[in-house]
């Protein structure tokens, strides 16, 4: 996939000028991650300002999910430093979690609990009020199923529940791993709606996705990972 890359930043650029524009949501410095014998991330350096909605592209196995999980504090970098809104990912992991919400490929809900109970649990653990639960359930079209255990849900329904949880949390940085996957058209519109809401609230969003066409027009930029390395430049 070719991109017309804006020229790589000249070395003489004044970093403080960029910093005063907007704070950095994500700052990666030579972040690498290894799993046993496999080097998945080979040294990523990234500056992502707050409020941007960015697509993360790359083929399967390129390291997209690993990067997202790293930012969600589920993984530690093998080397390099990473920070989210100025908080170090390793040393201040608890603080980072307050700012980050993660939508994984898996549903992320407890099958033995109902949809409503799952969202309520997330609220209690986040310290957020529970009033928004019913509204979000309605928004994703799960109101009639709110009191059914999640194990009977289809994968699309589980996805929608994940979207509801994400919206409820309303964190500063949203990490979405293949949000459109296993959703019907109605579900995909929910994702689009979610992105609009994020935009309206000034949230920062990083979306790993295989669907450039769907995202075009909704994102500010896209970056590409290829075999654990970020390719030159960010494109629009």
């Amino acid at each position: 996939m070719t991109e017309e890359a804006p020229a790589p930043q000249p070395a003489t650029e004044d970093p403080t000028a960029a910093a005063t524009e907007r704070p950095l949501a994500v700052r990666l410095e030579r972040v690498a991650r290894r799993f046993g014998r496999e080097q998945v991330l080979r040294g990523l350096s990234l500056r992502l300002p707050a409020g941007r909605i960015v697509a993360l592209r790359g083929s399967n196995g390129s390291g997209k999910t690993t990067l997202l999980r790293l930012l969600a504090t589920r993984l530690r970098p093998s080397s390099g430093r990473a920070s989210v809104f100025g908080r170090d990912l390793v040393r201040e992991a608890a603080a980072v979690r307050r700012e980050v919400a993660y939508l994984a490929v898996h549903g992320g809900s407890y099958g033995t609990l109902t949809a409503r109970e799952n969202l309520r649990l997330a609220c209690v653990l986040t310290g957020a009020p529970q009033d928004g639960v019913d509204a979000e359930l309605a928004r994703v079209g799960l109101s009639e199923h709110a009191d059914r255990p999640v194990r009977v849900f289809s994968s699309g329904m589980k996805r929608r529940l994940g979207l509801a949880r994400l919206a409820l949390r309303d964190a500063a940085l949203w990490l979405l791993d293949e949000p459109y996957a296993s959703l019907d058209e109605e579900g995909r519109e929910l994702v689009d709606d979610l992105l609009s809401r994020a935009r309206a609230r000034g949230r920062t969003v990083l979306i790993a996705s295989h669907e450039p066409e769907r995202l075009a027009g909704r994102i500010d930029a896209s970056i590409t990972i290829d075999r654990g390395v970020l390719l030159h430049g960010a494109t629009e």
Binding site: P8, L46, R47, P49, R52, S79, I223, L230, A234
Partner: peptide, 16 residues
């Protein structure tokens, strides 16, 4: 070995 497998370039990708 890990150092060898890491990218030698130190390119910083900046989103505008």
């Amino acid at each position: 070995r890990e150092a060898r497998e890491r990218d030698r370039e130190d390119e910083v990708v900046r989103v505008r």
